[in-house]
Structure formats: structure tokens, C-alpha cells
């Protein structure tokens, strides 16, 4: 692997995206905001805790799906950006390098301290998260419910981008060629979070 993960994290974590005079942050082909992480985790937790047990899976699917679609578009913006071309692209030799690079940026942006644990090109990804803001919902004890909806959806999106064919801005093709499931969670008492992504 030619990817220098530490260099990518160091360089991209310093990215200083500022709002313009309209209070709007533009970058990577999308509009961005820089909000307290708790706004997303609080909504996810209240939303999933509010539904009856028989609807929990459906509620979680909706949260993962939102993250999946978001990361598909933003991920494409990342891997076609000037910052990517300057820092990551010179290190890339294979499609798998793109994934390692993308997850290094994922880490630099504070989405989660993640690393690829296993990768079968075009088929399967196992991603580990050693720290992630979504685990902060539990401060004592272990939850019976996993909460890494963003990491789960984004993992599938990055596999879509790597192996799902050309990027489709409408999301009708390319998006949803992989599905992801969280199998371990710091919020559940595990040492790390883990997501398994497989081809549909």
C-alpha cells in the first residue's frame, strides 16, 4: 500500500473551510456546515428511542440511508477535489489505495478514527472505528443498541464509489450497490466499532 495515512490525516485535518459573507461554506461540490456533533447524535438517539421495538430496524435503516447518500455525494466531491489531487492522488496506485485515502480523510474530518481491517476488492470491506463521536451517546455502561449510523452508511457509500461504477449525481445508479451493517460498537462495550460492508 502506497498510502501515507498519517500524512493525509495531518494535511487534511488542517483544512480551514470558512463561511463566506452569506454564512455559507462551499467545498467539495456541496454546501457544508460545521455543527456540534451532538445535534446529529441527539436526533438519532431520540428518533430511534421514540419508535416501538418493531419499528426500530426501519428507523435505523432511514438514518443509515441518509448517511449513505450523503457520503456518496460528499465522498465523490472529496476524491475529485484539489486537496485530494494535491495530497492523496500522488500516492494512489490501485482502487484500494483510493479507499484507504478516503478513509484517512474520513478520519481527518472527525467522522471517526477508522481504518480498513479487511478488504476484498469489489466484494467486502471490514472497517474498524477506534473512536467516533456517535459512541458518545453512552457515557456509562453498555447500550443494547448500536449507534454508528453515519459510519455504517458512509462505509457502504465509499464502496459504491470504489466499485459501483461511474458516479451518478442523481444517485439512481451507483448508489446502493453495497450494504453495511454495524457488528460491534464502543457504545455497546466493545473495544472498537466495526462495520461489515458487502456487495448487494
Amino acid at each position: 500500500m502506497a498510502i501515507d495515512r498519517e500524512k493525509i490525516i495531518t494535511e487534511l485535518s488542517k483544512l480551514d473551510l470558512r463561511s463566506d459573507e452569506k454564512g455559507i461554506i462551499s467545498g467539495f461540490g456541496v454546501l457544508l456546515q460545521h455543527l456540534p456533533a451532538t445535534i446529529w447524535t441527539l436526533f438519532s438517539e431520540r428518533f430511534t428511542r421514540a419508535v416501538p421495538n418493531e419499528l426500530l430496524e426501519a428507523a435505523e435503516y432511514l438514518l443509515v440511508d441518509a448517511a449513505h447518500e450523503c457520503a456518496y455525494h460528499t465522498g465523490y466531491g472529496i476524491i475529485t477535489s484539489e486537496e485530494w489531487k494535491a495530497v492523496v492522488e500522488p500516492m494512489i496506485k490501485t482502487t484500494e489505495d483510493i479507499l484507504h485515502g478516503a478513509f484517512a480523510i474520513f478520519t481527518a474530518w472527525g467522522w471517526g478514527k477508522v481504518e480498513i481491517q479487511e478488504l476484498i476488492p469489489g466484494e467486502k470491506l471490514v472497517l474498524r472505528a477506534y473512536d467516533y463521536y456517535e459512541a458518545d451517546v453512552v457515557e456509562y455502561g453498555k447500550s443494547s443498541k448500536m449507534s454508528a449510523y453515519l459510519i455504517t452508511g458512509a462505509s457502504a457509500a465509499f464502496m459504491d464509489l470504489a466499485y459501483g461504477g461511474n458516479y451518478d449525481p442523481t444517485g439512481k445508479k451507483g448508489l446502493g450497490t453495497f450494504e453495511a451493517k454495524q457488528v460491534k460498537g464502543i457504545e455497546c462495550g466493545d473495544d472498537y466499532g466495526e462495520v461489515v460492508v458487502t456487495k448487494i
Partner: peptide, 16 residues
């Protein structure tokens, strides 16, 4: 590996 602003974890997300 978190972005911290004034003591709070913040995270960049897009309009999607």
C-alpha cells in the same frame, strides 16, 4: 481524531 471548537466536538457534514 476529532475536531474540537471551544470545547465541543464539531463535525463537518454536507447539505445532503
Amino acid at each position: 481524531c476529532r475536531q474540537i471548537a471551544d470545547g465541543h466536538t464539531v463535525v463537518m457534514h454536507c447539505h445532503h
